[in-house]
């Protein structure tokens, strides 16, 4: 019969640094390659609409005539399908995440 087997771990934890970060005051560092929000470089974008067709959640709308690229941020699942599809490499996945919000936002970018 063994009792208090966890005691050793608990004492060790008592005298070591916490496993968590004090989040709002101490920002979290995202590793390279983390799938955050989609960012677009409108200077190279040709508005072909391939990303719109490849998006599994239909979050992206491209209007070619007006040179408008918009994304429903709350619908995007950061899968990176648009990034893989982009023929001009104008789309990128940033490591930063989109900030939470109470309304469903749509961001529009113009060339």
């Amino acid at each position: 019969m063994h009792f208090f087997v966890i005691l050793k771990t608990l004492v060790k934890n008592l005298f070591s640094k916490p496993a968590t970060v004090k989040f709002p005051f101490e920002p979290r560092e995202y590793p390279e390659g983390s799938r955050g929000q989609v960012v677009i470089d409108t200077s190279t974008c040709i508005f072909c609409g391939l990303c719109q067709r490849k998006c599994p959640t239909a979050a992206i709308t491209v209007v070619r005539a007006e040179k408008k690229w918009s994304i429903k941020r709350m619908q995007c699942i950061s899968c990176g399908a648009c990034v893989d599809a982009c023929p001009k490499n104008s789309l990128k996945l940033d490591t930063k995440y989109y900030t939470p919000d109470v309304t469903k936002k749509e961001d529009t970018y113009n060339a």
Partner: peptide, 15 residues
């Protein structure tokens, strides 16, 4: 989860 995020970019949904 940290290792997963570093290698795939997601913590739970690997994608």
């Amino acid at each position: 989860l940290d290792i997963i995020e570093e290698t795939t970019g997601g913590r739970v949904i690997f994608g």
